[in-house]
Amino acid sequence: MTNYGYTLMTEQSGPRELVGHAAAAEEAGFDFEVMSDHYFPWLDEMGHSSYAWSVLGAVSQATHRVELMTYVTCPTMRYHPAVVAQKAATVDLLSEGRFTLGLGAGENLNEHVIGQGWPPVNIRHEMLLEALEIITSLFAGDYVDYKGEHYRIDSAKVWDLPINPVPIGVAVSGEQSVRAFAPIADHLIAVEPDPQLVTWWDAATDKPGSRKIGQLPVCWGPDRDACVARAHELFRWFGGGWKVNAELPGTAGFAGASQFVTQDDVAGSIPCGPDLDGIVRAARKFEDAGFTDVAVVQVGDESQLDFLAIAEKELLPALRG
């Protein structure tokens, strides 16, 4: 049976609001919650970007049942992998084993802030692979020394660890990234319902119970035209695809890259308005592709509680039916 999650978007809501949304989403009946981890929003109109790990600590205490996950953290530049291992272990302890560490190769948008440039994609994948090796070693509980092409670790140890290592998911976009990360990670993360990714992943891993976790943006509301306008204002960047989005250096770049995206374009890719059947059909594409988990993103800060109310009464029963 497919698990349905709720996305805590740090780019469109403030930290206190996110904690409230997390508690309401658990009450509404979602199975898990994922949180974005950015330094910048994609567009100025989104207006927020709080520190995900502080919010996760609060969310771990405001919720009691739902699984929690980063979707996704980049452990290569803005964060050192040894520090990521430490804070992931801490959140898992705070949440009593409900946390999954979702990782990705990052975006220029967030990593440029440390002033070290933005490496090409092959180097970013090398860095992520080394980071995974470091984090996995630290989760084992021993002292870790490491000398790689991109990182050195000198006698590091995470002192507060959960009994079971924190599960790790990795965002992938093609066969090359699947073959690199499937053997060492636990779960697949992707934003498109591509069945080939699932096939490649299953062929490259021998870990039982490997999950495939997707994400579906929606803009629910009683007025379809208003929803389309809101989705266009806040989410028109989404259509660029991650190969393009990963390279753009700031919100001005995303605004320029999406300046010719129309409201019709957005409405063609994001279910908008009161039609819950459209959301269900979009979710089924992930299920048909072999995904085990789908996290829904509701576009717009002010609409979250109304969306959660309709999700509890109508959307989640329809998805599970």
Rank of each mutant, 00 (worst) to 15 (best):
G239D: 14
A185F: 10
G239S: 15
D206C: 00
V191H: 14
C227M: 04
D186Y: 12
K212Y: 03
P217Y: 09
F260Q: 15
C219S: 12
E247L: 15
A190F: 05
L188H: 05
P195E: 14
A252K: 14
F181N: 04
G253R: 04
F254D: 09
D202G: 06
A182C: 09
E192S: 13
F254S: 11
G240T: 11
T205E: 01
P217F: 09
P195D: 13
R211C: 08
R211Q: 13
G250L: 06
A185P: 03
F254P: 10
P183I: 13
K207N: 10
K207A: 10
V228N: 04
P217D: 04
A231Q: 01
V218P: 03
C227N: 03
V198A: 06
P193V: 11
L188K: 07
G250D: 15
D186H: 15
I189K: 04
W220S: 02
V244C: 02
A255C: 01
I189G: 05
D223H: 02
G250W: 04
A204S: 15
L197N: 09
K212D: 06
E247I: 06
R230T: 15
A182W: 08
R211A: 14
A257K: 12
K243F: 10
A204H: 05
I184E: 14
F260P: 03
D194K: 11
A226H: 02
R224E: 13
G240S: 10
I189F: 11
V244L: 09
L197A: 07
A257M: 10
V228C: 02
K243S: 13
A231N: 02
V228E: 05
E192W: 11
W237Q: 00
L197D: 08
G256H: 15
N245M: 15
A226Q: 10
D202N: 13
I213Q: 01
A252L: 12
G239C: 09
F181W: 09
F238L: 07
F260M: 15
V198T: 06
V244E: 12
K243N: 12
D206E: 13
D206F: 00
F254A: 08
W201E: 02
